[in-house]
């Protein structure tokens, strides 16, 4: 009832598309991070008009399933491009690659989550650290970059790691818009052989190994950051 030859035979085929999963997760996280920094600035500086709009958007994105967001972008982005074209921008709404749609949707999703995570790391830095920096004569901007942000980064890495791993797992639905990543390949092979559990277990192993590797990388990153910032020793 469990065809281990089929499972073993399928494994390399599924593994071969794993880079697509990782590529999507990394690109979306990097873009999402950049947007998140802007969101954090708007929200922490409480910039008028923008702040409530951004806060609502973040709440909306955090309150809706990624698969729904993906379809909103899938159907919405071409319409947006049509509208922009009508306004004289040089855009090509036809034949948007699926990867562009996925990266757009996942970047937006990541930006909302990452911005909240940065904010909570920011708030977890003792405010007196900033005050102390200012009282020894640092400019406020310098106090931020020399004192607050280094401490913030060390606090932020564990959360960031979780968000990134969640994003990797969330990419398991992009086969719906035609991207061939781990889940898609597993589905394709399954439907050819009518053997499901075998390929899904292959996918499971691949996901777990990917998550494990990235979790370790982030842990090492955290240790390096902590040693650098606080000079405390913490082992894995």
């Amino acid at each position: 009832m469990f065809d281990s030859n089929f499972a073993l035979g399928s494994f390399p085929k599924i593994l071969a598309v794993a880079p697509t999963t990782i590529y999507l997760a990394i690109v979306a996280t990097v873009i999402g991070f950049l947007i998140a920094v802007l969101i954090v600035i708007v929200r922490e500086r409480q910039i008028k008009i923008l702040n409530p709009i951004v806060a609502t958007l973040v709440s909306f994105i955090r309150g809706t399933p990624i698969i729904v967001q993906m379809y909103v972008v899938y159907y919405g982005l071409p319409q947006l491009l049509v509208a922009l074209k009508g306004m004289g921008f040089n855009t090509d709404p036809n034949g948007l690659p699926a990867m562009v749609i996925a990266i757009s949707a996942y970047s937006l999703n990541a930006s909302a989550n990452i911005s909240e995570s940065i904010r909570s790391a920011y708030h977890s830095v003792d405010h007196r650290q900033y005050e102390a920096a200012v009282t020894v004569g640092m400019k406020p901007s310098r106090a931020m970059t020399r004192i607050v942000i280094p401490q913030l980064i060390a606090n932020f890495i564990p959360n960031f790691s979780n968000l990134f791993l969640d994003l990797i797992k969330d990419t398991a639905i992009v086969y719906n818009i035609g991207i061939v990543e781990i889940m898609a390949e597993a589905n394709i092979i399954s439907s050819i052989g009518f053997k499901y559990i075998e390929t899904y277990l292959d996918a499971l192993v691949i996901y777990i190994v990917i998550c494990w590797i990235f979790a370790k990388l982030f842990q090492i990153g955290e240790i390096i950051a902590r040693n650098h910032v606080f000079h405390t020793q913490k082992t894995i």
Binding site: I173, L204, W212
Partner: peptide, 10 residues
């Protein structure tokens, strides 16, 4: 370890 590395869809 197993479950937390598994996408919910899977």
């Amino acid at each position: 370890g197993l479950v937390r590395g598994t996408p919910p869809l899977l």
